[in-house]
Design a protein around this nucleic acid. Sequence first.
DNA 1: GACTGTGAATAAGTTCACAGCT
DNA 2: AGCTGTGAACTTATTCACAGTC
Lengths: 208, 208
Amino acid sequence: MKKISDKTITRALLYIRTLDKLTREGRESVSSGDLAGITGLTDVQIRKDISNFGKVGTPRIGYDVIELKRILENLVLRKKTVQVVLFGTGNLGTAILKYPAFGKQRIAIVAAFEKDKRKIGKRVNGVRVYPVSQAREIIKKKDVSIGIIAVPPEHGQEVADLIVRSGLKGIVNFAPVSLNVPKNMQVRDIDLAIEFMSLFCQTRMDAA
Amino acid sequence: MKKISDKTITRALLYIRTLDKLTREGRESVSSGDLAGITGLTDVQIRKDISNFGKVGTPRIGYDVIELKRILENLVLRKKTVQVVLFGTGNLGTAILKYPAFGKQRIAIVAAFEKDKRKIGKRVNGVRVYPVSQAREIIKKKDVSIGIIAVPPEHGQEVADLIVRSGLKGIVNFAPVSLNVPKNMQVRDIDLAIEFMSLFCQTRMDAA
DNA sequence: GACTGTGAATAAGTTCACAGCT
DNA sequence: AGCTGTGAACTTATTCACAGTC
């Protein structure tokens, strides 16, 4: 099977989200042009992406909403639910714990870890908060794939080290610090300040 | 002046963050190789990026930490502070309001807007919460560049329309919905579920 | 006719290889 | 020697143009 690029996968997830919405609206079929109108991408881009997953469209009609969604979900997700753990239950960590779209999207936060003793033992949105010292053990026990770092930047690296030692293969890092991890580790950095500033810079460039 | 790509700008902001940290640590000079080690990028990539902003390094020594930071900040940011407004003060919105790194990075949230009457009039981390009906007026009065959408997905589009009508030029959209906006509008989508799932898919691909 | 699917062309981004400086 | 800076080669991603299908 041909390898599928990161960008295509990210867009496929966007198509799934869109198809999900169309299903709820009772829509039965959709063309690449329709999807382009909704998502802001081009129709060719969408057909190219979908062609990675086989020939599933019908000329003259387009794609069957349910079938396309099923195909994308099966080939991209494969597993039923992705289990993740969260480090840090400050404002951002708590917002992540309460993020409503995760259930829908097959993401389960199975545990949260925290240094602050006052928060340990509590539950946030049904997720138990444990001391960091139990992280390795709990990660081993449950089938966890990804660790989320939502701690202050000065503790980002130590948490990353712990995640690596615990055998996880992916990190979503919200701490505004560059993590030093083995090359085989997948890291997705989300620095809110950088996102904002880069958008702002873009708007300035356009004006010029 | 040659146009600088979005990717280069985003990395430049990462360099600024890194140089800021090095300054605080008392470091005076840094080579592209050092920056590569810290950021996980390659040294050539870093030199290529920096070369967009002129010849600022010294052979044998590297870059002066303070000077490079100043050059990147001036050419990329230009303005002193970016003024933004926030729509939605739920969990995610509140986390954004309390995000500590914004002050450091010259981002100022000047107002928050909310539908829920019980929250209106309060202050969160010093930012006043206004009714949505006052958004246009307040945006006009202050010099706002960017709107942040942190409302439930079903209200994302109406907020986007309001942002467009208010004359803003950029949106950071945390609502898991594709926004339909004029082409000249800059949009940065951050769908946490998609970020997580795409990272997970990447880790699966690597294993194969 | 109106859609999908795709090889070919183009554009964007990255890496290589090395010249130049101190 | 040890760094920066950069044209050229290469790789990746997007767009074009059109053949194929119902």
